[in-house]
Design a protein around this nucleic acid. Structure first.
Lengths: 343, 343
DNA sequence: TTGTAGGCGTTATCAA
DNA sequence: TTGATAACGCCTACAA
């Protein structure tokens, strides 16, 4: 291993004591202008970069944030979501002069143990947890650690935990309102398993809330929920189209873009024109949505990461006592599947 | 800040000296069975996790790898690529008991300075650089640092640098051979700017090599290269279709899936059937390729990250003197756009 | 304004 | 096999 230049080398080069070098470079104390200049020159000449690891050890300042994920990097369209969240976090971390350390855990694991190990071993100043499913029991004893923790893209039942999540209720609400604005009155919904998935529930709740707010009647025959597969979506569409003409919806909100795309294909195969005979929209802004020209809502993943970082900063500076809880609204993207005028 | 249990606490609890605790936990020296047991119990009881930061400082062992990226996390389909590479790297790092530290630099920057700072400040044991374009000049003096460095998804001119990249030449070669196998003889190519982009050159080179190997004649009128935009792809297709009937290609390899999709739309609009009248393929396995049913090649991004990690390990253990240079071949995915039988 | 001394938590090197 | 001691590179009192 080559010799790494350290603070002592700079001190020798500049002809001062190492504590003067430290003060000059961190600005943590008084230094004469002449000495500061000498130190800066020496540092530049020797290409000195302070060892922040050692610095953190002494100063007990924790300038590293950890991102602990329980993620399967399989061929899945969700990977872009991971990357964008990370991008936002990295930007915020950079501005706050914090490093970001990653750990991914797959398979069987003890979430609580993973968190504690990660925090302690790496001396984290903050922890972000990115997991499709989070074991809340595991998180309870996390608060005993004094490491600020934020759950990303997961809304815990325990109201004492900080989290940032996407507002799925808002998503379907906005879509229904858009459809109403386009003149639709009979609006159907095709969604996921309400009992198992909080996402499915939220997206469905938004539909119900918007229908209610707009004064539209609900009809169980056009509000079908089972799972997020495109296959079910097509079945649901077929069932709706088997209804008497006047009972059929003129527009359908699907819980995902992939479901909407599948319904679109089936509808076209049945001779329907989109959006003239049937308007369609989905949720997620999946890569499939743009080429399929499906109206959807896009979640601000980058913002999730960026704000998660801000939350850590707020929490660690003790600016807030209680937990921080944020829901980010999605942005609607109108495409041809709901509007003849779009694009 | 709450008190963190340290090695001294464990020593007191176990009734031994802290150096015995260290030896017992790291296995770096002799410890009696009885004492080892006592130490392990005490550690478990106190929920002790060694501060790896302090340990690394003393032992001068560098157990952190850095991933330095120059990446724009913009709404781009390339983000899934970043995530998959990262996934592979994290898995390898986990197995090697290394942490992964991230840094992303956007905008104007001095790559050389970024690298040195990152390595030194964070005491990295290895550095991965993930950048669409890498300043090679900046990397030259990186070798003076004794930090093992691997360029990811970039093939430098300087043959002394270690890198891992995707085999773009192989990609188009495989596609041409597939088309020949399907019976095509007149195969066109639509690609990017050969002067500016190494990717564009490689993909074009593979086309030329495969045509040559298959004994097929080249025709400059059906080998058009300008840029990677779908707009250009459509122009190129129009130009090819303006040719005399016998000069037209029966199949076209596009340098990207997005270009292929655009050509497919234009061709269908012109009344052609895909693949009967025109076979089409692209490269990248872009999210658009599956729904558009376009034959393509998929690059093993996860493998890139995983192998990049292995390369760092090899380099840091000094198992190899020279640079490590790896090209990973893509995998062809046959879809309807080239084969009536596919799917 | 500067230098001295001590310690952050761990591991390495001794001597016992 | 164990314990004492000295680092690692830096920061932070405090004293000069």
């Amino acid at each position: 291993m080559a010799h790494r230049v350290n603070i002592e080398d700079v001190a020798r080069e500049a002809g001062v004591h190492r504590s003067t070098v430290s003060r000059a470079l961190t600005g943590s104390g008084p230094v004469s202008a002449a000495n500061r200049e000498r130190v800066l020159q020496a540092a530049r000449k020797l290409d000195y970069h302070p060892n922040t690891v050692a610095g953190a050890l002494k100063s007990r300042r924790r300038n590293t944030w950890g991102l602990l994920s329980f993620w399967y990097f399989t061929p899945s369209s969700l990977d872009h979501y991971y990357a964008k969240v990370l991008g936002g976090l990295l930007d915020t971390a950079g501005k706050a002069e914090h490093r970001v350390l990653l750990q991914n855990v797959v398979g069987r694991f003890d979430q609580s143990e993973s968190c504690r190990r990660f925090c302690h071993e790496s001396q984290l100043g903050g922890l972000l947890i990115l997991a499709p499913r989070t074991e809340e029991a595991a998180l309870k004893d996390l608060r005993k650690q004094r490491v600020p923790t934020v759950l990303v893209a997961y809304r815990p039942r325990d109201r004492e935990l900080s989290f940032i999540d996407l507002d799925n209720v808002h998503a379907s609400r906005v879509l229904v309102e858009h459809l109403v604005h386009e003149g639709h009155r009979r609006i159907g919904f095709i969604g996921g398993e309400l009992k198992l998935s909080a996402n499915a529930r939220d997206r469905h709740d938004g539909y119900l809330a918007a229908m209610d707010r707009c004064g539209l009647a609900l009809d169980a025959r056009v509000d079908l929920n089972r799972d997020f597969t495109p296959g079910f979506a097509v079945q649901a569409f077929d069932a709706m189209w088997a209804l008497p003409r006047t009972a059929r919806p003129t527009a359908i909100v699907c819980a995902t873009d992939r479901m909407a795309a599948a319904v679109g294909d089936a509808a076209r195969a049945a001779g329907l024109r989109i959006p003239e005979d049937l308007a369609l929209c989905g949720i997620d802004d999946d890569p499939i949505a743009a080429p399929a020209e499906i109206t959807t809502v896009r979640f601000p993943f980058y913002e999730v990461g960026a704000q998660a970082g801000e939350m850590l900063r707020t929490l660690s500076e003790g600016l807030r006592d209680g937990p921080l809880q944020v829901l980010l609204p999605p942005q609607i993207i109108v495409r041809r599947s709901t509007s003849g005028n779009a694009r």
